[in-house]
């Protein structure tokens, strides 16, 4: 392989020195195609051992796997309730969802284990306490009584609509804020983001930073009250 100058077909090593002269197979004619992905093999592998032993082993293993499917160890044991796509396989376009899959609840075979033989933390009765540590905790109302709960959002929205009819700009922002509040309630509590007053402060800070929002959303208040009905619709498209 010639390097550097990139000229011509000269070889960088002295061919005669290595005992490779012209016309010998050591330097084949330059190939113009990439080498084959699966080069031809000299000989196929030896055949598998056949006989009663291997037949027995095969039959037993197949039966074992079949039995394990209905053993309860497969957790959510009904074959259809599991993701039957085996690992390593490409997602097949032939996968057909059955109508019955949607409406039949597969019967789960219960897992029967003597949990006293395993570490305490694995036992089912200890599981319920685990739920507390799930990444999506539900809202505990006792902590922040100022919060508007989900059910009240629509109510608050109605109230605010009426307030907006009096033409308060900041209340619009509260409207937006409370719309997003409803979603925030389900997320982990971030400090200082939930409370209304603080939220407003934040929002105002945000708005101060970017004039974009101010300029973009023209709520039509300058146009007077008769356009109040179009508030929620935003622009007319």
């Amino acid at each position: 392989m010639s390097r550097g100058r990139g000229r011509g077909t000269g070889l960088s090593f002295n061919a005669e020195l290595l005992g490779v002269g012209r016309g010998q197979e050591a330097i084949p004619a330059s190939l113009l195609t990439p080498p084959p992905l699966y080069p031809a093999r000299l000989a196929p592998p030896c055949p598998l051992v056949e006989g009663p032993e291997s037949d027995y082993l095969l039959a037993v293993r197949k039966e074992f796997l079949h039995q394990m499917k209905s053993s309860g160890f497969q957790l959510g044991g009904h074959p259809r309730s599991q993701n039957t796509q085996p690992p390593g396989a490409p997602t097949s376009a032939l996968k057909v969802e059955r109508y019955s899959d949607r409406y039949q609840t597969p019967e789960d075979i219960p897992l029967q284990l003597d949990w006293s033989r395993f570490p305490a933390e694995l036992r089912p009765e200890n599981r319920r306490r685990r739920i507390k540590r799930r990444p999506m905790p539900t809202l505990t109302q006792a902590k922040k009584p100022n919060l508007v709960s989900r059910g009240d959002v629509t109510q608050t929205l109605d109230e605010l609509e009426k307030k907006e009819k009096s033409g308060d700009k900041s209340e619009d922002e509260t409207d937006k804020k409370e719309g997003s509040d409803g979603e925030d309630e389900d997320k982990p509590k971030l400090p200082g983001a939930i409370e209304d007053s603080e939220g407003e402060l934040e929002d105002e800070e945000m708005d101060d930073g970017t004039d974009y929002a101010n300029n973009y959303f023209d709520n039509g208040e300058e146009y007077g009250d008769e356009d109040d009905d179009n508030l929620d619709e935003g622009g007319i498209y």
Binding site: F73, L113, E121, R123, R130, R133
Partner: peptide, 19 residues
């Protein structure tokens, strides 16, 4: 066990494997 919380039913799976 805590490292496995993202997976489905880690307790039972561990139980099966230990068993």
């Amino acid at each position: 066990l805590a490292d496995l919380y993202q997976l489905d039913q880690p307790h039972e799976c561990l139980g099966v494997l230990i068993n």
